[in-house]
């Protein structure tokens, strides 16, 4: 088996994969968000941004492959950990006192994660696939605003972003704890930064469908 496989398949090894992939996804979200915000500047700004990405297509493709690996590791490992942990607990108590011991964000990562996964599949289907495989140039701005004009689509998008905020609020500080970076002086700050990051990410991502649904309908 070898020492590396023993290490990475241990309970702590699996958690380290979650933490490492989680932090990389946190960085990815920042970049993704900054790109999305060009939507507020209108069709030209957004299409120019999308066009710039097209120019660097080989690099984007490599990043996409890496992102796929990161996502798959995070989702697969998360599911495996959830399942083994469920088995390790066995039966539950007659009285549920969880809310006295823990916060809701920490308890619900599998639920929020699952819904974010569904969101991700829909997201790739509606935006990523047409922008890459529709053949020829497409007006990406029109595609995006068209979807956001639909209340059901936007509603689910906003809902998923709120849950993403929940997920990140736990995940951010949890990653640092898993790396062993819990210091009396800095950890309270890390927790605050994590919460701030989670709120900002959720709000800013969700603000885009809100804007196009209510204030800028259709186009």
């Amino acid at each position: 088996m070898g020492w590396f496989s023993t290490f990475i398949n241990s309970s702590i090894g699996k958690k380290l994969i979650m933490a490492l992939t989680g932090l990389l996804l946190i960085i990815f979200l920042i970049i993704h968000l900054l790109g999305n915000l060009t939507l507020f500047a209108g069709a030209d700004a957004f299409n120019t941004y999308a066009g710039t990405l097209k120019k660097f297509e080989p690099i984007v493709r490599v990043i996409e492959v890496l992102l796929t690996i990161i996502f798959v590791l995070h989702i697969y490992n998360g599911a495996v950990l959830w399942w083994t942990n469920r088995k390790a607990k066995g039966s539950l108590y007659a009285v549920n006192a969880r809310s006295k011991e823990t916060n809701i964000f920490a308890r619900t990562t599998i639920q929020t994660g699952s819904i974010i996964f569904i969101f991700l599949v829909i997201h790739l289907q509606t935006f990523w696939y047409p922008s890459n495989f529709s053949g020829g140039e497409i007006n990406l701005y029109g595609l995006v605003t068209g979807w956001f004009a639909q209340p059901v689509y936007s509603g689910f998008y906003i809902f998923a972003m709120i849950l993403l905020g929940f997920h990140l609020n736990h995940g951010f500080q949890s990653a640092f704890q898993t790396f062993g970076w819990n210091h009396k002086k800095y950890f309270p700050l890390i927790q605050k930064i994590g919460t701030l990051y989670a709120i900002l990410t959720a709000l800013l991502f969700a603000s885009i469908p809100v804007y196009f649904l209510f204030f800028h309908g259709g186009n």
């Binding site: 309970s11 702590i12 083994t84 942990n85 011991e101 823990t102 736990h170 704890q177 819990n182």
Partner: peptide
């Protein structure tokens, strides 16, 4: 099972063992 950093253990520990120990273990 493995640790998902909910910190319920620290809340219930009769000796108040800190989860900073878990960070050290990691």
């Amino acid at each position: 099972g493995s640790c998902t950093n909910t910190y319920a253990c620290e809340a219930e520990c009769p000796k108040g063992i800190s989860v900073r120990n878990i960070a050290r273990l990691n």
